[in-house]
Design a protein around this nucleic acid. Structure first.
Lengths: 347, 347
DNA sequence: CCCGGCATCCGAAACGTTTCGGAAAACTTG
DNA sequence: CAAGTTTTCCGAAACGTTTCGGATGCCGGG
């Protein structure tokens, strides 16, 4: 294994100078820098990360911690996240570690914070990516208290400010609600994700805000929270449209899977889209679903999940480097695609 | 951050002794060992991996390298592997890194070996898990040439011997073939995985060996290789049973998905199982498929994929510690479950 | 010719751990 | 009680890198 000393001897330079040359410091002449780089390539030199870490305090490795659970290998979103982040960090010369803690059977993730500690205290990891934040998230609180660098995909409002990258959940539901409201809809339903995630709350606020602009309000039975699956979309729509209460004239769906279930339910209930019910959704461009392939083509807001990995990597890198917080909070915009699934409300 | 020196000062011991106490060496008295461990817990001490790596040459981190490709997040087996290994290594106090190299567009994985080099020369990784070996695999050759510790899930026969954990692919197909042969079948088809994987070759040899015992042989059109999907199973079965050539009276399927496709095809072709055609398969117990839930219940050999992660982790750990090769090659047994999908051959 | 400034360079210390060789203390044995 | 053995301990070096403070040589300006 070639070391810095080998290089230095070979070049008749000091170790110091070789190190500085390789790291692009400015007190090394252009000529020697080239000479050093050439020799490094020639001798097949790779810096020893452990040594570097030891002195500089950074290892260049970041991680993602998750508690394992049954069926985890079928979590497409989780793995889209892992693969996306892994690639992004690789291309930035960093390493990305997926750390799966063994399944636990306690109350609220008792040891996941211990895992963070262990990884960072051992000096193996520089920082973390956290996803699926909840209001008052233990993980975020713990990372902040211990000044461990991290970035959240999404955000929590309650806690003190932290680095994050998020899509404008509030704004996109507001947009969809306004769109439906302008078409004359007043009784609108929403089928969204699991109650305890922060983004679900944000969407709910956008929903209520939009309704309020038209003097409407959300009836509790028109607000359904559950897993983001086709099955849940179907169940929620059936309940919403076959119960005793007055039917909504439009539905907003949390993602395309839910929309698919809603389509199926409406079709089974002989309700036409958009004549009887307008349907709109948010599209996070995951998997193979496409709103154009719905029939009728689905009206959506769109913000691609796969475009978040780059920014997340950037933000975490900067957080580790100690940049200012205000550069580390980003909200990605969304686009709006009108399909044929939304139309004027029936009189 | 608590260091060994802090501990030593606090205990009025030397750093050496504290280190040895913590690492369970035998020249430290029981009393002080307990004292040290207690203090370590008290002061919240975690060993610094970088420092340890620097001196001992080991980092306790192992990895899995894969080149990214479109749709990778839907690869259930890949992620069953990653999650399984991650958990196993975690529980052994090691870390498991998934390293996804960016998609390449060259010929045969030109840079994947460079990735291995970089990771191991940088001293970040101690060893690798390799899956999906092919005959004459570049990765395996490279790892062996450079004396980098690794373990293969599966094996390549051609190359020099290397550590591996494999299921008895040859044996299980031999078993199924014998089972069918004993029932009087002579024209047997097989639908197996992609040609270029080593395990497919092993299965094929088991198949031919079994047939030979009954004086039979495999016709080329009765041997289908392709992706392990339900769709491919269906296609292969249709081709096999609707072509001009004499029909097989039995089919062996590479896994349950293929078997599912074969069931569908036979049903569509109005062929009864097992009266017209016997079907047997290998079950690697992945996802939610279960041979008992087939109708009629499927006859299978079974070797659970999820039981390989533990042995793989053990073997890699031992390979890194420099154990003898002969302890590092393991073949897992399989079981046999007779269902109702196999019966005597028609006269 | 001297001096300040600049461009390059270098020695040595430090990071936190393991390990080598040996030393002190405690027991055994005759 | 002396000599040997075992148990328990310790100092110092080493791993490969970065960085601090300073050194060297060279230039032009006065």
């Amino acid at each position: 294994m070639t070391t810095l000393r080998d290089l230095a001897r070979h070049l008749e330079l000091s170790v110091t100078q070789v190190s500085r040359a390789l790291n692009g410091h400015d007190d090394v002449s252009e000529a020697t820098r080239l000479r050093v780089e050439e020799a490094a390539r020639q001798l097949n030199y790779f810096p020893n990360r452990a040594a570097r870490r030891l002195v500089s305090g950074r290892s260049g490795v970041v991680g993602f911690v998750e508690q394992s659970f049954a069926g985890i290998e079928r979590e497409e979103i989780l793995f889209a996240t892992v693969t996306g982040l892994s690639e992004e960090f690789s291309s930035r010369g960093m390493q990305f570690v997926l750390h799966l803690a063994p399944k636990a059977s306690g109350p609220e993730r008792p040891d996941i914070v211990k895992t963070y500690d262990q990884l960072v205290r051992g000096g193996s990891l520089d920082g973390f990516v956290v996803t699926g934040p909840r209001p008052g998230d233990v993980r975020i609180r713990h990372l902040m208290e211990n000044a461990i660098p991290f970035v959240v995909h999404g955000r929590t409002e309650e806690a003190a400010p932290h680095p994050f990258f998020d899509i404008d959940n509030h704004g996109l539901v507001l947009h969809l609600t306004r769109h439906l409201g302008a078409l004359g809809h007043r009784r609108i339903g929403m089928v969204s994700g699991p109650q305890d995630f922060s983004y679900v709350g944000a969407r709910q606020r956008g929903f209520e805000e939009g309704l309020a602009e038209f003097g409407a309000a959300a009836a509790p039975e028109q607000l359904r929270n559950g897993p983001m699956t086709e099955d849940f979309g179907m169940i929620a729509a059936v309940q919403m449209f076959s119960g005793p209460q007055p039917r909504p004239t439009a539905v907003i769906c949390g993602n395309l899977r839910i929309a698919k279930g809603v389509y199926r339910a409406l079709s089974a209930l002989s309700l036409r889209i958009p004549e009887d019910v307008s349907v709109a959704a948010h599209d996070d461009v995951v998997a193979h679903e496409r709103p154009e392939l719905f029939f009728p083509a689905l009206t959506v807001t769109r913000a691609s999940l796969s475009e978040s990995w780059g920014p997340l990597a950037d933000i975490l890198k900067e957080a580790i480097e100690g940049k200012d917080l205000k550069d580390l909070q980003k909200i990605s915009p969304f686009s709006f695609l009108e399909g044929r699934s939304t139309g004027p409300a029936r009189a």
